[in-house]
Simulated assay, not measured.
Amino acid sequence: MPLMLPSESPTSRSIVGVAADLFASLRGESPSLPRADSVVLVLIDGLGAIALRAHAGHARALTAGMGKKDVAHSVFPSTTAAALTSLLTGVWPGEHGLVGYRVLDRARDVLVNQLSGWEGDGIDPMSWQAAPTIFESADAEGRPAFAVGVAAYAGSGFSRATLRGAEFASAPTPSERIAAAYDLAERHPGSIVYCYLPEVDKAGHKHGVDSHAWVAALEDIDAALSQRVPPGVGVLVTADHGMVDVPAARQIVLDEGHVKDVRHIGGEPRMLHVYLEPDADADSVIGRWRQDLEGLADVAGRAEAIGAGLFGPRVSVTAAERIGDLIVVPRGNRAMYDGTATDQRSRGMVGQHGGLTPEERQVPWLRLGAFVR
C-alpha cells in the first residue's frame, strides 16, 4: 500500500519545539510556558501518552493535572536516535540527519547503528550530527547547562552527539536523578537542566507495556517526580516516543523473494529503510513490495517519503542520502524482520516503536513547579 500518513493538525505541538519553549520561558517570552528562573527537561524514554493515561492509577503524580491537550507528537521515525536528537537540538530528523536506528553510510557501503554503534561503526559524533544542541545554545547565551543521566552513557558516541555543551552528572535511580536535576537548577539560576529516565523503555522492550516490570518502572518514576520542585524552577516532563507490543503472531518475516534486488535492510522492525542494489529498478521493487505487503505495511520511495514531510519540512542532502530507497512501515502492531539475516535476536523484543501509530507518536507534555499556572 502507498504511505498512509497520520491525520494531525499542522498546529499540533511537536517535541521539536520543546527547546525553543524552554529558552523562551527563561526569557519570559513563551506563549505556552510561564517564566521560570531555571528549567528542567525530564525525558521519560518510551512513555507514550496513551499508555500513561491507561495506567493513571500507577502514575498519580504525573497524571494529576493532565488534560487532553497535555500531549505532543514525536517525530518520524518514532525511535530514540531520531526523536531524542530532535528534542535536544530543536530540529527535525531531516535536518540533524539521524533518520533511523540503523542507516546506510553510503561512503563506506555499511549500515551504522545511530544509537549504540558510534564507536564500533566508526561514526564521528561531531560531524555525523552537526546541529547545535540545546546545551551549546545555552552556552552561547551564557547560561549554565547540565545533563543528568546514567553513568554508563557518559561519554558515549550518542551522548557526544546530543549532549555536547552540557556538564554531565550521573545517579543510579530515577529518584536520585530527579533530585540531582532539581538541585542543579536551584543552585544555578538561568540554567537548563536535562534529566534522562530510561527505565520504562527498557522494561517495555523486554517485557511489554502492561507487564509487571513496566508498571513497576512507571511507579518508580512517578514517585521520583513527586518530589518538591524548588521555587522558581519550571519542570517540563515529556518523552521521545511511546511503544506498542508486538506478539509473535504479528511478526512479518521477509524471505529470499522479498529481498531480491535489496543490498541492505536498515531501520528497525517498526520502520525499515530498504537500500537497493545499484542496478535495481526502484519502481519495480516498490511495486512488488506494495503488492506483497498489501494491508500489512505502507511502502514509499525515498522521494515520496521526503515529499510527504515524514522527516520534517526540510531534508538536507546528507540526511536524504541516509534514507532508504524504500521506506516500509508495518501497520497496527506488526513488526517486520529479515528472515535471511544471521542475527534474529531482535525478534524476541516485545515492546517496539518507530512507526506512525498514535501509541508510538503521542507523548505526554506535562508541567510541574513554576510551569504550573
Score class of each variant (00 low, 15 high):
V235E: 08
P330F: 13
E219D: 06
G157Q: 03
G355C: 07
Q129G: 02
P125T: 14
H73D: 02
P77V: 15
D292T: 14
M243R: 03
W289A: 02
A213K: 06
V259L: 10
F371C: 10
A216E: 13
R177W: 11
E167W: 02
A131P: 00
V328G: 06
E304R: 07
G57A: 09
D220S: 15
A213R: 11
A179L: 11
V215H: 01
R288N: 01
F371P: 02
L197D: 00
F23Q: 04
S346F: 09
K68D: 15
G266Y: 03
A59P: 12
G312V: 14
R331I: 14
E136H: 11
P2Y: 03
G266Q: 01
F146T: 11
V200Y: 05
D338P: 03
A185L: 04
G312R: 03
G257H: 05
A224M: 09
R288L: 06
G28T: 08
R164T: 10
S346T: 14
T173Y: 02
P2S: 09
S170I: 10
S226E: 10
F158K: 00
R314E: 13
A370M: 08
K206E: 13
G295K: 07
A161W: 08
L218K: 10
D279Q: 10
R373W: 07
A282M: 04
L115T: 11
A140N: 00
V363N: 05
V259F: 01
H273E: 01
D210Q: 04
G332I: 13
G266F: 08
V193W: 00
N333S: 15
S9N: 12
G204L: 07
F146P: 00
R361C: 13
A61G: 12
T342G: 04
S78G: 01
G351T: 10
V110W: 06
S211F: 06
D292L: 15
P278L: 10
W289S: 01
A249L: 05
F158G: 02
D298N: 13
L43W: 00
G97A: 09
G17T: 09
E95H: 08
A305K: 05
H207W: 11
A61H: 14
Q344R: 11
T162F: 01
S346N: 13
D255F: 05
V209E: 06
V209D: 04
T318S: 12
E268A: 08
F158C: 03
I221M: 04
Q291V: 13
D338L: 06
D124Y: 09
A248K: 11
L5V: 14
L272F: 11
E219A: 12
T162H: 05
E321H: 05
Q129T: 15
H207A: 14
S14M: 12
R187V: 10
K69Q: 15
L310M: 14
R367W: 06
E294M: 13
F76K: 00
P34R: 04
A213C: 07
M243W: 05
R263Y: 02
L84C: 12
L41M: 11
